[in-house]
Simulated assay, not measured.
Amino acid sequence: MSRSTVRDAPEGASPSPGGPVRRQRGASGRPKAESSSAAPVTLTGRGGIVVMFGTGLVCALLSRWLGVPLLAGGGFAVGCVLAAFATRPADLLTLAVSPPLVFFAATFAAVFATTLGDGSLARGLTVGVLTALAATAPWLFFGTLLVLVICLFRGLPENVRELRDKLAGVRLFEKEENENPVRWDESPSRRERRLHHGEVD
């Protein structure tokens, strides 16, 4: 081993005999920390539903105050896209079936907030909700379609298969329990005794 090899070796590195110096990086954890910090934010299924509801509610309130029905439907569609991209793949099935209910809840909350204190609450709610749903129904279907398409590309079929396998396993387990019940009165020892006494007789 030559002296130049030992001199060129950085601190904390041990020169290997008969070969070049292998550098040992003490800061090997830095790339992992950077990659973990740069990871995209993922939401649970409930988090995605909250995003859809919050966006739909804010836009529905703005549309009623400003008199622009298009704002409620467009905001709900934007919330659907954000939730579909931000939700983790394991909860896509929960998110895919929730847009109609979330849309109705956001519309009802917006109508309730803007109708409160204006005469008959029941009449105002009924008329306001029906009018809002009629004006923004196409956006509901559009937002639901966007969620389904995005979730299909992000792994929704796998979630459906897992759910189907779980249901099939539960049904099979219940079927096996029903077909082979435990009979305490017909124990093997009693059967052997009966056969033994029958042969002696």
Rank of each mutant, 00 (worst) to 15 (best):
S2H: 07
R7I: 14
G12F: 10
A13I: 01
A13W: 11
P20G: 13
V21H: 04
R23I: 14
R25L: 14
R25A: 12
R25Q: 09
G26I: 06
R30T: 14
K32W: 05
V41K: 08
T42S: 11
L43P: 03
L43Y: 09
L43H: 01
G45V: 00
M52F: 03
M52N: 04
T55F: 15
L57H: 06
A60C: 11
R64T: 00
W65A: 12
W65E: 14
L66P: 00
G67D: 11
A72W: 02
G73Y: 02
G73L: 01
G74M: 09
L82V: 15
A83L: 03
A86E: 05
T87G: 05
D91F: 01
D91W: 01
L93S: 03
T94R: 13
F108Q: 08
V111R: 07
A113R: 05
T114N: 08
T115I: 01
L116R: 12
G117C: 05
D118V: 11
L121H: 08
T126Y: 12
A132D: 15
L140D: 10
G143D: 04
L145F: 05
V147C: 06
V147M: 03
V149D: 07
L152G: 04
L156I: 11
P157W: 01
V160A: 15
V160P: 03
V160D: 04
L163T: 06
D165K: 14
A168C: 02
V170K: 03
V170M: 04
E174Q: 13
K175M: 06
P181R: 15
E186Y: 09
R190E: 10
E192N: 08
